[in-house]
Design a protein around this nucleic acid. Structure first.
Length: 313
DNA sequence: AACAAGCCCAACCGCCCGGCA
DNA sequence: CTGCCGGGCGGTTGGGCTTGT
């Protein structure tokens, strides 16, 4: 008998996240941290399951997430590690700072698999999962006659190698090192800052609906041209946005100054302090209606719409 | 210009694992 | 020891976008 998942509750929203939901999640996690993913959406005012919130945060909203094109080196690393580890995307992701397991997995399936897909190591777990899936498919329908492994590889080699200590490739980064990692290219998540797009933000401030396609100018994000120029353009874009926006000037550290390096450093300082200062973020400039409930320290419980019995249940 | 096919990727699903009571 | 629960992981889906005809 299978356990019901945390997302099985009725009435919870599914599908694409809206900018509003993103802001609520960011506001909550930066203020209170992710103390319990299952409970978090209730207190953050989100009609989502905890799992969905966790995924959204880890794969999309978390600072330092690098988006966009993969460098040759990154691809080489993925290929090498995939040959060694198989579909252990989380393990592979630890060697690619700023890349999430989900993104690496997607990149593998959409790009690298076609080019290098035959050199795959299948672990015990791969075999188990493949068997499970196959039996499930067989049960569901008799139409699927696919081979056990879709990449056409022969019978699986059973090997489980996860000893990162002996890995000749780059070592895992500590969290402190990870925080130091921001690069020019990963300063602006391609989609993660959708709601910061200049025109969209203005629409939002005017009460108009923002569209999903809103994002910072792709020209300034592009990896194809001069990177310094791109960063400069992006910095100017961000400067304009933040200068204009009461929503996104909530943290003094976020203020974007006049020079590129100021800008880079300000971002770095945010990311460096992010984890240690998560509970101290100044949200004072965010309109009250957008804020999550505050903790009333004198009373030791959440104020606003939540009851004490809910919190401690 | 219109439609189809293919691709990309955000998000979901279900299972597994480890911590804890 | 056992069962429950939350978090983590990998596989899969499906909607939107791009490219081809």
């Amino acid at each position: 008998m299978t356990r019901p998942t945390s997302c099985n509750k009725s009435g919870l929203k599914k599908g694409t996240w809206t900018p509003e939901e993103d802001r609520k999640l960011i506001a909550y996690v930066t203020r209170y941290g992710s103390w319990n993913w299952r409970q978090l959406p209730r207190f953050a005012g989100l009609a989502r399951c905890g799992k969905s919130c966790r995924l959204r945060w880890l794969n999309y909203l978390m600072p330092n997430i690098k988006r966009g094109n993969y460098s040759e080196k990154e691809e080489e690393t993925i290929i090498t590690l995939h040959q060694k580890l198989g579909n252990k995307w989380s393990a592979i992701a630890t060697h690619l700072p700023g890349r999430t397991d989900n993104e690496i997995k997607n990149h593998w399936h959409s790009n690298l698999k076609k080019r290098f897909g035959n050199n795959t190591v299948h672990t015990n777990k791969n075999v188990k999962v493949a068997k499970l899936n196959r039996s499930k498919q067989d049960k569901d329908s008799n139409q699927n006659n696919d081979d056990f492994f879709h990449d056409g590889s022969p019978s699986p080699t059973i090997s489980e190698t996860t000893d990162s200590a002996s890995d000749p490739l780059s070592p895992q980064l500590s969290s402190a090192e990870f925080s130091d990692y921001p690069t020019k290219k990963n300063l602006f998540p391609k989609h993660g800052l959708n709601f910061l797009d200049t025109s969209c933000l203005k629409d939002f401030m005017n009460g108009n609906i923002m569209t999903e396609s809103c994002h910072i100018s792709h020209a300034s994000m592009s990896n194809n041209g001069n990177e310094n120029l791109n960063v400069t353009n992006a910095a100017k874009t961000m400067e304009y946005i933040w200068a204009d926006s009461p929503l996104w000037s909530y943290n003094e550290n976020l203020a974007v100054k006049n020079h590129d390096f100021d800008f880079v450093e300000s971002i770095q300082s945010i990311t460096e302090d992010f984890w240690t200062n998560a509970y101290l973020t100044d949200m004072s400039a965010i309109p009250n209606e957008l804020l999550v409930p505050l903790v009333d320290e004198s009373e030791g419980n959440f104020s606003s719409i939540y009851y004490e019995e809910d919190l401690w249940r």
